[in-house]
């Protein structure tokens, strides 16, 4: 991982994690919407990052969020799981040549459709693991499923909006 990537990760983290834990977690939109937008940090990690580094980053990010939500282990577990799934996907279903370019997936570097699908799938996975683990029971699982659906839909929308905003800014600079 290059220095530029580290700087980008840390600066995004310093903005996104406070927004997540101080603003979004306190918004009570309705009973079903608890979007977690900070997973943007994990999804935009460079595609050729070493796996063990990505696990450590995910763990640290998850634990930082856990510290604010008073649920030690919950977000950490989910983040590490999602990064693992991301690794499984990249390792098995993606062109190795593309991986070696070492890009961070966003609207500048990748195909728009692919990015939407990528963000949607990982957001769904993330909210599925997070909310299932948080609920930790299959009683009233219908409500949990609704929560997963609504939360991840809103999260997908917000994440794509953020990514799009950053793209617009960088293209203006050009």
């Amino acid at each position: 991982m290059k220095t530029a990537n580290w700087i980008r990760l840390i600066s995004y983290g310093l903005i996104l994690i406070p927004i997540q834990v101080l603003v979004i977690n306190n918004l009570e939109l309705n009973r079903y919407m608890f979007p977690q937008i900070y997973i943007l940090l994990l999804l935009t990690l460079p595609v050729n990052i070493q796996h063990w580094v990505s696990y450590l980053i995910a763990f640290v990010i998850g634990f930082t969020v856990d510290m604010f939500t008073y649920t030690p282990g919950l977000h950490a577990f989910t983040c590490v799981s999602v990064v693992f799934l991301r690794y499984v996907y990249f390792n098995n279903f993606v062109d190795k040549e593309w991986l070696s370019t070492g890009i961070s997936p966003d609207f500048n570097t990748t195909d728009g459709i692919w990015l939407v699908v990528y963000v949607s799938i990982y957001s769904l996975f993330f909210h599925f693991i997070l909310l299932t683990l948080e609920n930790f029971s299959f009683i009233h699982y219908g409500i949990t499923l609704l929560k997963i659906l609504y939360s991840s839909s809103l999260a997908i929308f917000l994440i794509l909006l953020l990514l799009f905003t950053f793209r617009a800014r960088t293209s203006d600079e050009r």
């Binding site: 070493q50 998850g62 856990d66 649920t71 030690p72 282990g73 919950l74 950490a76 590490v80 683990l133």
Partner: peptide, 26 residues
């Protein structure tokens, strides 16, 4: 990386069950 993954997951789950009263009670 696999071992690291497993270790981190175990640490998270331990924390989850050790420090969360809800999960602990269940």
């Amino acid at each position: 990386h696999i071992f690291l993954f497993l270790v981190l997951q175990i640490v998270s789950l331990t924390a989850l069950f050790r420090y969360n009263t809800y999960h602990q009670s269940i």
